[in-house]
Simulated scan of single mutants.
Amino acid sequence: MSRNDALAVVKWTPMSMCMCTDKKMAEGLGIKELLPAYLDPNLQSPDLPTGVCFASGSSGYDPLTPTITGTLSLFKQLELFKEYIVKLTGIVGEERARAIIANSLFLVSAGNNDILISYSLIARKLHYDFPSYAALLVSMASTFLRCDLTLKDLYSLGARHIGVFSTAAVGCSPFDRNRGGLLRECLELELEEAAWFNSELSSELDYSELSQNRCFSDS
């Protein structure tokens, strides 16, 4: 297996700025200058073995979030990944495709828009206090990542090296600071909510079966 095969990166994130991280990650691993979007109409077959991006800006763990923002849900991205596997297998063969996927790095980044949009601005806040909503998000994240028998999750499709990013400083984004009055101050409540969610997600990953299979958090 070539070095590029072993270090293939599949980026999986609904963050709108994912391509900046993609470029640094792909370049840092010596794979290629830019990780292309899977849905890019100019995507070429040689791009598939060395990784693609399934990102959909403003999506999230909560299925309500992509419904509000009109973006692709994580499970729709998962369907695209299944399609990717079929295409990759057609290019390199089944055995090599399995090896590429098993040795790829999968990066998952979600939660920002769930907290900012679905909870803080939309109806979720009417039905949940934040600890309850954070628990719901953690459960959704675990369902997406974990190994089970439904074949609807990332692990069961062959991913073995999964990195999960914590949420950013929700409450200090330009959008939030524009809501912070004339001084454009950070919104302390949303900062606290993001910190709460990050702590709960990190604990779930640390103590789940995923931690035995190289699933890790940056928290």
Results as ranks from 00 to 15, higher is better:
Arg177Asp: 00
Pro131Met: 02
Ile117Ser: 04
Ser156Gln: 14
Asn178Thr: 04
Pro174His: 02
Pro174Arg: 00
Pro174Ser: 03
Ala110Asp: 11
Phe175Asn: 03
Arg184Tyr: 15
Gly181Cys: 06
Ile162Val: 10
Gly111Val: 05
Arg124Ser: 13
Val138Lys: 11
Gly163Gln: 07
Leu182Arg: 13
Cys186His: 03
Ser120Leu: 06
Ala169Trp: 02
Gly180Glu: 09
Tyr155Met: 12
Ser173His: 02
Glu185Asp: 12
Lys152Glu: 14
Tyr119Met: 03
Ser120Asn: 11
Phe175Pro: 01
Phe165Gln: 06
Gly180Met: 05
Tyr133Phe: 04
Ala169Leu: 12
Ser156Thr: 15
Ser132Met: 01
Gly180Arg: 09
Leu183Tyr: 15
Thr167Met: 02
Arg184Phe: 15
Cys172Ile: 02
Phe144Ile: 09
Ile162Lys: 13
Ser166Val: 00
Phe165Lys: 03
Leu137Gly: 01
Ile117Pro: 07
Val138His: 08
Thr167Arg: 03
Thr167Ala: 07
Tyr119Cys: 01
Glu185Lys: 14
Val170Tyr: 02
Ser166Gly: 06
Pro174Val: 02
Ser142Glu: 10
Gly171Arg: 06
Leu154Tyr: 03
Leu137Phe: 00
Glu193His: 10
Cys172Asn: 10
His161Ile: 07
Ser142Pro: 00
Glu192Ala: 11
Ala134Thr: 02
Glu193Cys: 09
Tyr155Thr: 09
Ile115Glu: 08
Phe175Trp: 00
Met140Gly: 06
Val170Ala: 12
Leu154Met: 09
Asp114Trp: 01
Leu189Glu: 15
Asp148Ser: 02
Ser120Met: 05
Phe175Cys: 04
Gly181Pro: 12
Ala169Tyr: 07
Gly163Glu: 05
Leu189Asn: 14
Ala159Ser: 13
Cys147Gly: 10
Ala123Ser: 13
Ile162His: 03
Thr143Cys: 07
Phe130Ala: 11
Asn178Ser: 07
Leu191Ala: 14
Asn113Asp: 05
Asn112Ala: 11
Thr143Ile: 06
Asn112Gln: 06
Val170Gly: 08
Leu182Val: 11
Ile162Ala: 04
Ala135Asp: 11
Lys152Pro: 00
Thr150Gln: 14
Ser118Thr: 11
Met140Lys: 06
Ser166Thr: 02
